[in-house]
Design a protein around this nucleic acid. Structure first.
Ligand SMILES: [Mg+2]
Length: 646
DNA sequence: TTCATGGCGTGACTC
DNA sequence: TTTCGCACGCCATGAA
């Protein structure tokens, strides 16, 4: 339901290289960037791909490779069956069921997480981000902000007018910056904009009121005050509406550009069901969050499984297919292996030679350094590596496609997409290989640009040696007579821990220059301290007298944790609930609304367990991190609530 | 006149 | 047997 014209209001976001974002997180937090990805961002884009077999899923494959090479830890979120009732014409599943199953399989072969949302993926992603399970959400639009996401990424695509369409950049939206910015839109404000301007399937919007008028109303505080209304207080709601309409008509307080005498406000505006859709979307319960929190982000890549997937799905068959597979996978897998050397190393101290031996198994040499625009000048090193030794896959096992039984490297050079250059096929001259860069042999060295910090993690001593050599070179150039005897000051580290610390320090001092140069004011918030949602702990019985939305701080203070008190609304919930109009029930029983909203299908009992039944609370301002204990007690509170929904 | 809304058509991708 | 998004540019329309 992207709000039409919303980007004219909130701006284009910060366009930033995904490499830079990932590297910053690696530096600042000593761990990879974690993002939740709404899988639907590719549901249409991928259809545009042409050529070969299954180009759509192949597009996903290449994106997954890219994620791998960015050292990002993703969790892919799929839409679930519990769509809100007012979106009922849509249905996910059947049509792309096969594609969905394939996508999940591929994602898991990469060692990435595939996660099913109970309802809308966008809302689930926002929940994961709010709870610190991920740092940011990659989505189609900025709707996630209305679900409470504070770091939203969208439009992962190429940047600049240069020829390459390689997707390098994303647009980043920080909810805190947004509320401070010119639009002044926070979560509540955006929800009001959605409610007022409506949309194709948001009924009871105000016809003729678009994003401009709605934003003016939001800046005047009507979003916040609407969300702070006590539930089931119809007179307060009527008063809110009266004030809004009065200001629209007369513009007495000057909130609006002009008066709006001609607007016809529907009788049932605002639609509380839609409001609740944003404030209390159908998302996973805390138990699921805990499970996700405990899951490891470092699952191994199934190389053999990926090879078979590519053979069957993309028709990358025979030895030629295997070589193509190795060629695209190796540079990405190299990054993974470099980063893993940080954590995977045993604590046993190793001598310098052992370290250097391990390093040279991964990387043969470093050839150059750059600060390229495609990565926002994030420093990178060009690494030379042997594809087969990175992938560890024996392509020789695979039969040749044609009758050519030759098993020297020559036949391998005929890759299917280099026909343009195949004039040289049959030319056995090795020099021809270097002339035509596209001639690829998986056993020969290949080159790849890797962020310098990642190289420092995986091959620290090789980087140190290379830097020393570079330094010597420049010195030699400026003062040819100077001796290169300057000993390696750093030398090889005595332990892996020391090594990493040293490397990190070096890298910080080294990269601050470039950071300042590019002057990026944007950075991710520290995620760990960010366990939010203190409000889930609210006893259900307090709902009817509680604000629909209020500030996180005050409500947290005022919420007594009463795990022992079961909800008293069970009777009304237990009668078979038709998905019919909940508006009538809304003032009577919030639980009814919650459940009806959650399940378009009456037969789905699951909805009651997946719907977080607690009322309330949007806190658009950054929350104070709750103490660790809150989380566990919250669990205790929610469980009975969940049981009551049965 | 100026401004905002809403309807319509179109593109996205990799090799 | 049901279905599906979003953003952008262009233009007509109507309100103030
Ligand atoms: Mg959306």
């Amino acid at each position: 339901m992207g709000i039409k014209g919303i980007y004219k209001e909130i701006g284009p976001g910060k366009r930033i290289s995904l490499t830079k974002l990932a590297v910053q997180k690696l530096q600042d937090s000593d761990r990879p960037l974690r993002i939740a990805i709404d899988i639907s961002i590719w549901q249409f884009q991928a259809q545009a791909a042409r050529g070969g077999t299954n180009p759509a899923i192949r597009t996903l494959f290449y994106r997954l490779l890219r994620i791998l090479s960015l050292a990002i830890q993703p969790i892919f979120v799929f839409d679930g069956p519990n769509k809100p009732t007012f979106k009922r014409n849509k249905r996910s599943g059947r049509g792309d069921g096969v594609a969905t199953a394939m996508a999940k399989r591929l994602i898991r072969l990469f060692g990435f997480q595939a996660h099913d949302a109970p309802g809308e993926a966008e809302a689930e992603c926002a929940l994961l981000q709010q709870n610190g399970i991920v740092d940011a959400v990659l989505s189609e639009d900025v709707d996630t902000i209305m679900f409470g996401c504070t770091q939203t990424l969208r439009n992962w695509s190429s940047e600049g007018t240069k020829g390459s369409k390689t997707p390098t950049h994303i647009s980043m939206y920080d909810s805190r910056d947004l509320s401070q910015g010119a639009s002044g839109l926070d979560r509540e404000g955006m929800v009001l904009v959605a409610l007022m301007s409506g949309g194709d399937y948001l009924p009871e919007g105000i016809p003729g009121a678009g994003v401009k008028v709605a934003c003016e109303a939001a800046r005047a505080g009507f979003g916040k005050s609407l969300c702070q209304l006590k539930r089931s207080d119809t007179s307060e709601l009527a008063s809110w509406k009266e004030r809004l309409v009065y200001e629209l008509r007369n513009n007495e307080s000057g909130f609006f550009r002009t008066r709006h005498k001609a607007l016809t406000i529907p009788d049932d505006f605002p639609n509380m069901e839609i409001l609740r859709y944003y404030t209390h979307p159908v998302v996973s319960p805390v138990t699921t969050l805990d499970r996700l929190r405990q899951q490891t982000w470092d699952r191994p890549i199934d190389i053999q499984g990926l090879r078979e997937f590519a053979r069957e799905t993309f028709d990358w068959s025979y030895r030629i297919g295997a070589i193509k597979f190795i060629r695209v996978l190796a540079p990405c897998l190299l990054v993974r292996k470099l980063v893993q050397r940080n954590t995977a190393e045993s604590n046993a101290p190793k001598d310098g030679n052992a370290i250097e031996n391990e390093e040279s198994e991964l990387v043969k040499s470093i050839t150059s350094r750059r600060a390229h625009f495609s990565t926002d000048a994030t420093p990178e090193l060009r690494l030379s590596f042997i594809p087969t030794s990175i992938v560890g896959y024996d392509f020789q096992e695979e039969p040749d496609e044609v009758i050519d039984f030759g098993r020297d490297g020559l036949a391998l050079n005929s890759d299917d997409e280099i026909e343009d250059l195949v004039e040289e096929v049959g030319d056995a001259d090795p020099a021809a290989k270097s002339r035509a860069k596209k001639l690829f042999s998986p056993t020969d060295a290949d080159l790849s640009w890797v962020p310098e910090i990642i190289a420092r993690i995986g091959i620290p001593s090789m980087v140190a040696d290379w830097e020393e050599a570079q330094r010597a070179k420049t010195i030699a150039r400026s003062k040819p007579k100077a001796s290169k005897q300057k000993a390696k000051t750093g030398g090889t580290a005595s332990s892996s821990l020391d090594k990493f610390v040293r490397v990190t320090k070096n890298n910080v001092s080294q990269t601050t220059a470039t950071e300042k140069a590019t002057s990026s004011p944007t950075r991710l918030e520290p995620p760990r301290v960010r366990a939010r949602t203190p409000l889930d702990a609210i006893p259900s019985s307090s709902q009817t007298s509680r604000p629909l939305l209020s500030s996180g701080l005050s409500s947290q203070k005022s919420q007594p944790l009463k795990p022992s008190k079961p909800p008293t609304t069970k009777p009304s919930r237990s009668k078979r609930n038709p998905p019919g109009p909940p508006a009538a029930d809304a003032n009577v029983n919030p639980w009814t609304i919650a459940s009806s909203q959650g399940s378009p299908r009456v037969t789905k009992h699951k909805s009651s367990s997946t719907k977080a039944p607690e009322p309330i609370l949007i806190s658009s301002s950054p929350p104070s991190s709750p103490p660790k204990g809150v989380r566990s007690s919250k669990k205790a509170v929610v469980d009975p609530a969940k049981a009551s929904g049965r």
